[in-house]
Amino acid sequence: MMTLKVNGREHQVDAEADTPLLYVLRDDLKLNAAKYGCGLGQCGSCTVIVDGKAVLSCVMPMVLLEGKQVTTLEGLGTIAEPAPIQRAFMEEQAAQCGYCIPGMMMRAQALLQKNSKPTDEQIRAELEPHLCRCGTHMRILRAVHRAARLMDTADALPAANGSAR
């Protein structure tokens, strides 16, 4: 048994030290936003945020999560109240099949948390580890820019929701 903090809640999970975080999220906690793409750290679809940094959960052993705060897409916003990054992806219609999108959103979110106005170059470089077989890259780029603008205005409002900070 170990304690895993996900989206602000503590869970007691029965997992081996060398079990990848992705399996625990999907199989034990039924948090299915993070996707299993390759299981080899080569596609980015399983990306979540751990202590503010984007990590590939399929190659992230539980032993490294002691005392860490995990954020998944479910932790950013809800259907009723989507987070800026989610709204931006919807408004730009960035998803085709959508398989890569949660991973893309999580890494973009981590980027925007440390750089609120990234350039095109920076977004491209940051999202480089992510594959999208549908080819919606241009919309994804636009969505990240839009999210940056949304967060900018959201920051001005009181009690912005869905921050992973």
Binding site: E16, A17, D18, P20, G41, V63, L64
Partner: peptide, 10 residues
């Protein structure tokens, strides 16, 4: 443990 989860798969 790190090796098993992060390295061995490849």
């Amino acid at each position: 443990s790190i090796y098993t989860a992060a390295c061995a798969s490849c």
